[in-house]
Design a protein around this nucleic acid. Structure first.
Length: 269
DNA sequence: CCAACGTCCTGCGTGC
DNA sequence: TGCACGCAGGACGTTG
């Protein structure tokens, strides 16, 4: 499940491969993953930059055409040199003279958008965790009047962009905050702790090439190494690194949440 | 305004 | 052993 660190890792690897090269062909393996526009309208263009917005990637070109991607659960871009072959779950291909960028997506929930500049595929995106505008005061405003659990709020991309199910649990563990605590009950100090924790965890994960929990692969086909540093995600029943108590799994908004009941005490309301 | 839930999808783990 | 079933979840649309 590619979240901010995984998308960022893909971005960095692709930068070295595709920038400044002319697109000489394209192929759409599964039409419904193209959410807007036509892939072959990119032929003859070249990518001039790749930016990340939350979990979206934006590929700028030498014209007003822009390619956006979102990986959802199982998407990724693989870079293949001319002689390499690995034919599974290829949903789209963008061809260059020295190789190709393949959009792979097992569960096909992700998508690509080819738009005129200015059009964006997302509805609403909150601040990027690494940006200056991502402050405790900003989050305090965005969460005011929200009675949802803080874990569920962290998954809301309109609140903060890029955090998914893995890093939401990890950031709350590092902050010592119980995942069920109501979003608008958190103090500025607690929100600050969440932001600081998230930044450290997300940056460490980027440095490791992200987390491969099951399916995720980097653009060179390799796994991200951050799984070894996870403290709670996927560890129900295992002992907490810090206190030795058993890590618990609960379900919030139809998604698994992992936490340590001792390190993240539940507040008595 | 907000919250909750259904929807999309396929591979794999579970249980009988 | 084999097979049916349900779970995994990100974003958005719909419903309450």
């Amino acid at each position: 499940m590619p979240e901010l660190p995984e998308v960022e890792s893909i971005r960095r690897m692709l930068l070295e491969k595709v920038i400044g090269k002319v697109i000489i062909g394209s192929e759409t393996g599964l039409p419904r993953i193209i959410k807007q526009g036509e892939l072959n309208s990119l032929i003859g263009r070249c990518f001039t930059g790749i930016e990340r917005y939350g979990k979206y990637l934006r590929f700028t070109t030498d014209t007003d055409l822009t390619l956006y991607s979102h990986f959802r659960m199982t998407g990724t871009f693989l870079w293949l040199g001319l002689k390499e072959k690995e034919p599974t779950h290829i949903r789209a291909r963008i061809l260059f003279s020295d190789g190709e960028m393949q959009y792979r997506d097992t569960r096909t929930l992700g998508g690509l958008w080819i738009t005129e500049d200015g059009q964006r595929p997302w509805k609403q995106l909150g601040p990027d965790p690494f940006s200056q505008e991502c402050s405790a005061e900003t989050l305090k405003k965005l969460l005011s009047g929200r009675s949802i659990p803080i874990k569920v709020a962290l998954l809301d991309q309109a609140v903060i962009a890029g955090i998914g199910n893995i890093y939401a649990s990890e950031a709350l563990f590092a902050s010592g905050i119980h995942p069920a605590q109501k979003a608008d009950s958190l103090s500025v100090e607690e929100l600050n702790r969440i932001i600081e924790s998230a930044r450290i965890i997300l940056q460490s994960s980027i440095d490791s090439g992200g987390t491969t929990f099951r399916d995720f692969r980097l653009s060179d086909g390799k796994e991200g190494a951050f799984k070894a540093f996870l403290k709670v995600y996927g560890k129900a029943g295992e002992k907490c690194d810090v206190c030795g108590y058993n890590i618990k799994r609960i379900v919030q908004a139809q998604r698994s949440t992992f936490f340590c009941p001792v390190c993240q005490p539940e507040l008595i309301a």
